[in-house]
Amino acid sequence: MSHEEAQSGLVQGTLHMLILKTLSLEPLHGYGIGVRLEQISKGVFQVNAGSLFPALRRLERDELIAGDWRVTEHNRRAKYYTLTAQGRARLRRETRDWEKQTTAIARILHASLGEL
């Protein structure tokens, strides 16, 4: 998993969370997820197929997302992924953990002697 994230310039362990977040907004197909991540991150994260599909496969295997085939806006068939209830719960937990951690890390990084 780590080399997939390294390729995308992602912090370790975050690709799954970001995919879950993207899907919590609306169901998307693989390409759509990549585009959405790039859009939202303003081009910071570029997730290629080599990273995206294994991650999707893992999430699907762990039943955090579910895929079904639908017709795209361009009138093609594509596999759309939806968040499952389990996935939603996982996203909530991971968001909470992440926020807790980032706040703590930020505090440490900005710490000055006076605050101690």
Binding site: G30, A49, F53, R76, R77, A78
Partner: peptide, 27 residues
């Protein structure tokens, strides 16, 4: 899931092909 994957490999393979095809065409 693993077992299922093993037995339904051909379908999973086809699906993966289709998914990658869709990815490419959408791109």
């Amino acid at each position: 899931a693993g077992l299922r994957g093993l037995f339904r490999k051909t379908r999973a393979e086809q699906e993966l092909d289709a998914e990658l095809g869709a990815f490419f065409e959408t791109a």
